[in-house]
Amino acid sequence: MRGLTAAFEWQSRAVVARHLRVYLKNWHTSFLPPALEPITLLLAFGLGLGAYMASGLEWHGRRVAYIDFVAPGMLAYATFMTAVFQSLFGAFIRMRYQRTWEGQLTTQIELRHVVWGEVLWAALLTTTYVTIVAVVLSVCQTIGLLHLELALMPIVIPIVFVSACAFAALGLCFTALVPTIDHMNLPIFLVILPLGFVSATYFPLGHPVMAAISTVNPLYHLAEGIRSLLLGDGASYHLAGLAGLLAVMLGVLVPLDMRLLRKRVLGD
């Protein structure tokens, strides 16, 4: 329990503040990827692929334009990928190469705060990225490319933050396990990318096997939950499913991260 409540202690905030300070040093370049990525994806998928689906696609018994289908999926996918990659590569570099954690652990910061600091930072960064993506989507909406309920974005943002915490906890698990940075390919290709594909972010899951697998995929529920909100269907059962999966992930993965990293970082 102490491991979970550490999220609210000042030490975890101090770790986040440190990461934020580093990020803000390079803010002008850090803001570019999340701003450019949705533009690229909207052009490629929305306009490019969408051109082959002039009549849109079937979603929950109604036709929606492909670009409207894919835009909420982009928000979910950005949440997943940003959080996981930050807690995989960013955290691994700080742990293994920069030895930032060791320096922090000689102060009043404990390992549980380092773990929560990484999780919260990944979530904060992800939320920032998704907010930037949302701004780009708003611009696209203004020029008539999209037709979404963007007024509901203030509801989406907290969902993104909590989801990112859980995805970051998953990424940290691999950070604790992989021996070198080269081994990151294993979790990326065996876990992360498959989860990304079976998620209905960029295409609907028509195949029954994929649909069955997706029921335990939090990214799928996130994508469908955001999509329901932004396509005007309101809060769907996917958000309840997402809440359950996120609670399990945070309750299981964060203590597991602490246990694995205690062994790896402290040798204890």
């Binding site: 030490q11 101090a14 503040a17 440190r18 300070r21 580093v22 040093k25 920069q98 030895r99 930032t100 060791e102 320096g103 922090q104 000689t106 102060t107 009043q108 910061i109």
Partner: peptide, 21 residues
């Protein structure tokens, strides 16, 4: 072993360490 924060300068290393107390 040296466990500096390589993202910061010498002065900033001292400042950031102070923020951990």
């Amino acid at each position: 072993d040296d466990t500096f924060d390589g993202d910061f300068t010498v002065r900033q290393n001292l400042e950031i360490a102070a923020s951990y107390f």
